[in-house]
């Protein structure tokens, strides 16, 4: 009898504790879910943009990169995105004064992955037309969640380099070449274990990684320029950790406790009391 009571109490206690433990385990994911960029202007943020995939300016997530350019330029930046992240690219273009501009302009951001495949935007105003008098135009693009592994034939986002291209797609001839200022910022939401998949790439999808990955020995003395030297602050995720481990382990513990509880219910308190001693 006493054993049963102890067990039941333990079961209830653990039953109460387990969701708490889960909540703790899930907490980092919740805490991370706020977009990472800090609004404060960091000193190291680039003030130039590239003009092609090859010359794209590398930026970190959370950095606010700026660039002065001419209307009609194709501006390129690149940033790293790792598995489990859902990046959002935001761009603001400050247009020349309305005195110089006589007609509406259409601006657009396109995001490409490390294989230069165009990536779809889930939502966000990827293209926007600024009226003749508008002082600025704001664009945004939220990508799909980056997965550690996908089918080869799919073009789902994979960890690696991502390119941003910002340009005016619709432009009156008179607007060509006028000075503009552009600002881009990349933040990302951490999706966590819900997006964890099995399998991983041997190398992230970073262009030129086969020649810069330390495997070839002849490149050390040639030019130091590389196609993309991009990497997240804390390196690429190894891909083995996800909060699925926590959920599964807690499930196992709860199952064991439920098993003990069920057993205690049916088996009774040891030897039946009716049985005469010595039977």
């Amino acid at each position: 009898m006493r054993i049963r009571r102890v067990l039941t109490t333990a079961l209830f206690l653990l039953g109460a504790a387990a969701p708490a433990a889960l909540a703790v385990a899930a907490a980092p994911a919740v805490a991370d879910s706020s977009p990472s960029p800090s609004p404060s202007g960091d000193d190291g943020a680039p003030t130039e943009a590239g003009t092609s995939f090859r010359t794209a300016t590398e930026i970190e997530q959370g950095q606010r990169a700026t660039a002065g350019a001419s209307t009609g330029d194709y501006l390129y930046w690149s940033f790293p995105a790792d598995a489990g992240q859902r990046p959002t690219v935001k761009a603001t273009v400050k247009l020349p004064g309305s005195a110089a501009r006589s007609a509406a302009e259409t601006w657009q951001i396109d995001v490409y992955d490390g294989l230069r495949r165009r990536q779809a935007c889930q939502y966000g105003a990827q293209t926007r037309t600024a009226a003749a008098g508008a002082a600025s135009v704001e664009l945004s693009c939220t990508l799909r969640t980056v997965r550690a592994w996908t089918e080869t034939w799919a073009n789902d986002p994979l960890p690696g380099t991502y390119y941003i291209r910002l340009t005016a797609t619709g432009l009156p001839a008179s607007g060509l070449g006028l000075p503009v200022n552009a600002e881009v910022e990349v933040g990302s939401k951490d999706i966590g274990g819900a997006a964890a998949v099995d399998g991983s790439l041997a190398e992230p999808l970073v262009p030129g990684i086969a020649t810069t990955g330390g495997k070839s020995d002849e490149d050390s003395d040639s030019s130091t320029a590389v196609l993309s030297s991009i990497e997240p602050d804390d390196g690429w995720a190894s891909g083995w950790w996800s909060d699925r481990w926590v959920w599964t382990a807690i499930g196992g513990v709860l199952a064991a406790l439920a098993g003990i509880g069920g057993y205690a219910l049916t088996r009774g308190a040891g030897r039946p009391s009716r049985v005469p001693p010595g039977a």
């Binding site: 998949v197 099995d198 083995w240 996800s242 909060d243 699925r244 959920w247 599964t248 499930g251």
Partner: peptide
């Protein structure tokens, strides 16, 4: 497809 076949 699930990470290491684990659940959640």
């Amino acid at each position: 497809v699930a990470s290491f076949g684990l659940g959640r």
